[in-house]
Nucleic acid binder design. Sequence first.
DNA 1: ATGGTAGGTGGCCTA
Length: 276
Amino acid sequence: MPLSVTTWNINSVRLRADQVIRHIEACNPDIVCLQETKCPDEQFPSSVFRQRGYGHIAVNGQKGYHGVAILSRIPFVRTDVKAFCGQNDCRHISVRLPSQCADLEIHNFYVPAGGDVPDPELNPKFRHKLDFLGEMLAWTDADQPARRNSILVGDLNVAPYVTDVWNHKALLNVVSHTPIETEALENIRATAGFVDAVRKLAPEPEKIFTWWSYRSKDHTVNDRGRRLDHIWLSPGVAAGLEDFVISRDARSWERPSDHVPVTVRLNLEAVQQAAA
DNA sequence: ATGGTAGGTGGCCTA
């Protein structure tokens, strides 16, 4: 049984619900994890997704900022939301699928971007980002999600490896690629025991990007991107990893998000066998 | 060191 999961920072789900549908039609994922929905729960455009077969929707949204959601064709049996850094920001939501789907747990994160100045003493947003990553580590230490069948996806706002950015040296002091961030993210992933799905199939030094800044006239000129969006798999789930797709063309759609969808396809029978 | 663009909001914030 195949299962595909997309993660996408949509930068306003109300403005781009039609683009979510366009992606669904092109890519046919079973589950779509969205970040930056910028939408209170009562205004989430659930009906247009239900009409397309995504009858199971979990939202954690707020007015104006942040916000995450999970659209699913498969019923989930449980949802859970975590708060980080003592704030009410909507930056996490998770669901668990039924036993036919290996009791798969899906965690959808939107890590704080961190502002412009990469100094926690000068920039409270960077302090918040580092604190958030610290709490993610504490959560994986306490909860051990990678010991179960689990996927952690989202806009993690860190490009951890050298070829996750268009120019490693030029970005070493740019928020999203500073050593303190890349080491923190890698420490979470490795300590928790997750597998970076995209890098398992496309190791360095292949350059892979999922985000291109709005602040350039033409994002294709010089291809100045970064890989900020990630899909991490517990080892048992990684045993079923078949392929991945970076839907780069979405960055050239009219009025695009600055991020593009990242999708993995899994073979759940291989996941079940790995668990047995 | 700076500015560039985008979205939601409500008279600026975050990215």
